[in-house]
């Protein structure tokens, strides 16, 4: 009798939990559904659907017209290619270079460590927008204007990522390293063969943050690209907003195309990201 009661109670609690999960999910995913659905509708219908639940339902005058316009007229894939290249360069460099300094700060002893750490914290306060003109002059004198490297490299040394890595490596067991040193391994080997493989969750976290940052960067590319060759997606999206007329259907289609690669990538890596974050691996 008692077990039956508590079983029923458990089921009810479970149901309530699921209901809660679903409600919260609606808040998070609703606006994204609205984006995807609207990208299939003509502008007039987007407006008239705004007042009710139809805004979230694919119905009515659906077509791929917006997408065709965006791909053919707005030349989506040219910008897409540029964004992909810049983002790959940025993510690769940002995940490794910041990991290196994070490892040194977190696991090695050396003079000046404290200064570097507090400098990192201080530097993280500086908004990129505030130094962008001077950064432009620096990149110009290095001859890196209008190149992929010029687009990617200035933000690679990113204080927040350094701090994240530092925090992570600080928490790693020192015994692993000490054992490896006794075995005669070099620090580089320890870093690449032991520490990095054990840091997949944090690497994935930084990689995703870096990806989003680079993928959505709006201001820097307006300065550093000097012709159409290297312009990235956010710039092309901004061009769709004109003073005289904005076709929201096209804006939504372009946005959807911009968001989907990120979503796919995230889904592919979510095992790394979410699952290994939650599985208790090395946390000791």
């Amino acid at each position: 009798m008692r077990t039956a009661m508590s079983k029923r109670k458990k089921i009810i609690i479970k149901l309530c939990m699921y209901l809660g999960y679903l409600l919260i999910a609606a808040i998070f995913i609703g606006p994204i559904v609205f984006l995807f659905v609207s990208s299939l509708k003509p502008y007039v219908q987007i407006e008239s659907d705004m007042s009710n639940i139809r805004a979230f339902i694919p119905y009515g005058d659906l077509s791929l017209d917006n997408y065709i316009n965006v791909i053919v007229k707005a030349d989506f894939f040219k910008f897409f290619k540029n964004s992909v290249v810049v983002t790959i360069i940025f993510v690769l460099l940002a995940t490794t270079i910041n990991a290196m300094i994070g490892y040194a700060l977190g696991m090695l002893n050396f003079r000046g460590k404290a200064i570097i750490i507090s400098t990192i914290v201080a530097l993280s306060i500086i908004p990129t927008e505030s130094i962008i003109i001077n950064r432009f002059m620096t990149v110009n004198s290095l001859g890196m204007l209008n190149t992929y490297i010029g687009l990617a490299i200035p933000s690679v040394a990113y204080p927040m990522y350094m701090y994240l890595y530092y925090n992570h490596f600080k928490g790693m067991p020192k015994e692993l390293q000490e054992a490896a040193i006794i075995d005669g391994a070099s620090y580089w080997k320890i870093f690449t063969k032991i520490m990095m493989p054990l840091s997949k969750p944090i690497i994935t976290t930084v990689a995703i943050m870096a990806f989003i940052r680079s993928w959505s960067d709006l201001l820097w590319p307006t300065l550093v690209t000097r012709d159409g060759t290297y312009r990235t997606l956010p710039l092309a999206l901004k061009s769709l907003f004109s003073d005289t007329y904005t076709d929201w259907g096209q804006v939504f289609a372009f946005s959807t195309l911009m968001v989907i690669p990120t979503m796919i990538l995230f889904l592919v890596f979510q095992k790394q990201f979410v699952a290994s974050v939650t599985s208790s691996g090395i946390k000791g």
Binding site: F136, M137, T222, R226, L235, K238
Partner: peptide, 17 residues
Amino acid sequence: YYSKDELDNKMQTSSIA
């Protein structure tokens, strides 16, 4: 072809570049 903001940003920095 650039959006107005982008064109203005590029023009204003064109003498530096």
